[in-house]
Design a protein around this nucleic acid. Structure first.
Lengths: 204, 204
DNA sequence: GTCTATAGCTTGATAGAC
DNA sequence: GTCTATCAAGCTATAGAC
């Protein structure tokens, strides 16, 4: 994919660095991963890396944006935005996502460690995470309100509260799973989701 | 309190260092806090600090253990162990704890950042957190089973699953609260707890 | 017990050759 | 684009004086 003769995906080295950074930030956290580590695994030196990304923060942000780019939802008719799914599909996707994550420890570590690190207002990724949580929450509230309107939510379920619960469960279950790989993230999440619904999710 | 003529609480400097360490680890995380920082705020130099605690890891572990020592549950008849509470009191204490934490951002940050950091098997506090989660989970399962036996749990509530949910909610809600101080940790937790019970908790 | 001094290492970033 | 060389700053930890 090119624009004005320049590859907007960047060249091979840039991509290699980005993917390596994603894996290593994931495995060790942002602060504990050095530019030298990433550069070495990418087959270059750290000043070589800094040619492509002027600072470590710039590399982090580029890696997070790249991650979001790759994270489409595959439906029968192509790739759909998560935010465009209807209420039920949203919840199904959440549970399916938890199951898929259990195969990618590194990625779970990245978001678990970054979402706590980035809690500090002066962290380079703070704004990114504030926006991410706020949009996820808005999407979930919208989906739950749809379900409520269709009489598919149990009595007493409050969309805003349930949305906060869902996000908290995903984050918290990830910690438990990282501490003990026997934890059934998807099962526990499905258990909560079904406690919200009058008609349970179809088993995956 | 002395044993064999030696104060088992250590002397004043040791306590000062321990309390300072707890506050600073809490405020900035373990990896981001240096021995020099802690020492300076304690009124000594960092080699002075290392006289009392041989390594930074030893200081972390001592600070965590001190935290647990201080963390008794105050009941009408003195201090009780959390694990000794009955099912209902356990859940009430959980909600009350979330409300109390909202006044101590530093402490929430400490446990949020450490519980993720310590997810790595080679982290100094890994064993501590594995034990902490496992005992908390066991206590909650026991309490929920008590409630189930007393017909106080709603139909379909599975104690092991609900225990995992409760722990995950506490961790996850802390992240949301750290990102956005308007998040009502105690309210959201109470909402979930009441969805488990046939008879709601008395309002605090 | 606490200090000064320092060893030995790692970090993010820059300068300048090629 | 990528390198070598280097900087200034930070870190944990140790040696040895007092």
């Amino acid at each position: 994919m090119t624009v004005d003769g320049r590859s907007i995906r960047g060249d091979a080295t840039r991509q290699q660095v980005l993917d390596t950074a994603l894996v290593m930030f994931a495995r060790q956290g942002y602060r504990a991963t050095s530019l030298r580590d990433i550069a070495a695994r990418s087959g270059i030196t750290h000043p070589g890396l800094l040619y492509h990304f002027p600072t470590k923060e710039a590399l982090l942000m580029a890696a997070l944006e790249r991650r979001d780019e790759v994270d489409g939802v595959e439906e029968d008719d192509g790739v759909v935005e998560f935010a465009d799914l209807d209420g039920r599909a949203l919840l199904e996707h959440l549970v399916a996502g938890a199951a898929k994550n259990a195969a990618k420890r590194g990625l779970v570590e990245l978001f678990a460690s970054l979402s706590v690190e980035a809690t500090a207002p002066d962290h380079p990724a703070h704004a990114y995470f504030v926006a991410r949580y706020s949009s996820l929450r808005a999407t979930l509230v919208r989906g739950l309100e749809e379900l409520a309107a269709a009489q598919e939510l149990r009595q007493g379920v409050v969309p805003t509260v349930a949305a906060a619960h869902l996000i908290a469960l995903m984050d918290g279950l990830q910690i438990q799973w990282l501490l003990d790989a026997d934890t059934d993230m998807a099962g526990a999440l499905a258990g909560y989701v079904n406690s919200l619904l009058t008609e349970p999710l179809k088993a995956p």
